[in-house]
Design a protein around this nucleic acid. Structure first.
Lengths: 155, 155
DNA sequence: GCCATGTGCTTCGAATTCGAAGCACATGGC
DNA sequence: GCCATGTGCTTCGAATTCGAAGCACATGGC
């Protein structure tokens, strides 16, 4: 069970990943706050709903997509519901189930907020890389994502 | 000020980055919790101290390295101080300054915890990529990191 | 149909996070 | 030297996070 320590290159990649992820997260948070209204978790939640067929998803599916805890999702959906951006709907197939649905107001807010958000993502990551780098990044991280998802669908 | 939306490749890279970063973060958290004792922010904090000359850093420097808020850092250092893993020291040059110092106990705990942590990082990211991919990843994210750090040293 | 077990979501309390305000010392212009 | 302003860190209260426990319905064996 002896695990070799990270060598220089590995460490460089890992620390760069960690730092960039932290910094980007913080920057996005800041932009969204200034832009008013939404927090980062809320924005991501609504985005996933917007992309889903019928702009609605089961709570559990949504939690998995967002990589968040179920209780955390309950809280955020409740917040967004109070703000009128999302509503809950009973699930037809399963009486225990709950669907989170993006409201029209929610879709509007998302449309207004998106450009600023994309601007940040472009300025600090996407536009800094050429096509090949983007493709490589996507490929590399896809592998990791698949591994992570396979290893632990259990929460 | 019209910002082009992300095209398919850009979106793929961005979502892969977001997901991988969330998943990895969660996995690491889980491993550290099971391994007992430390949380992820605490582990990272102690690692940065361990790497620093004299295993000590000014609070502000540490906060910047960790990409966390100053108040958040105060809290975590206090926790670690209670646990005897870190201690505070007055700063010689500046009476306002505080140094966080890794204690011997802290270094021991870190040594015991590190292998399991590296194992997770290897299993879910580093070992999935070949040398070229690692180098490309490090390069790409270095560019982003530099941009993020330049754009906002202000908190 | 009954019941043991599983699943989906929420509630709960404790821990952690944040930014704004506060406090103490540092710095530089005069 | 005095004072206006800056900087380093902590305190504060409010918001958010989590996992464990709780509750309701679902499922499948018999």
């Amino acid at each position: 069970m002896d695990t070799p320590w990270l060598d220089e290159l590995e460490m460089r990649a890992w620390v760069a990943f960690l730092d960039t992820s932290n910094l980007l997260h913080r920057r996005i948070d800041q932009q969204l706050r200034e832009d008013g209204g939404l927090t980062q978790p809320q924005y991501e939640l609504m985005t996933r709903l917007a992309e889903a067929p019928g702009t609605r998803l089961r709570m559990t599916e949504l939690a998995d997509l967002l990589v968040t805890s179920r209780s955390g999702l309950t809280y955020q959906v409740t917040q967004l519901e109070k703000a009128g951006l999302v509503r809950r709907e009973a699930c037809a197939d399963d009486d225990r189930g709950v669907l989170a649905v993006l409201t029209d107001t929610g879709a509007d807010v998302l449309r207004r907020t998106a450009p600023g958000h994309v601007r940040v993502v472009r300025d600090h990551l996407v536009d800094l890389l050429d096509r090949r780098q983007l493709a490589d990044l996507a490929d590399a991280l896809d592998v990791a994502r698949r591994r992570l998802r396979d290893a632990g669908p259990h929460r």
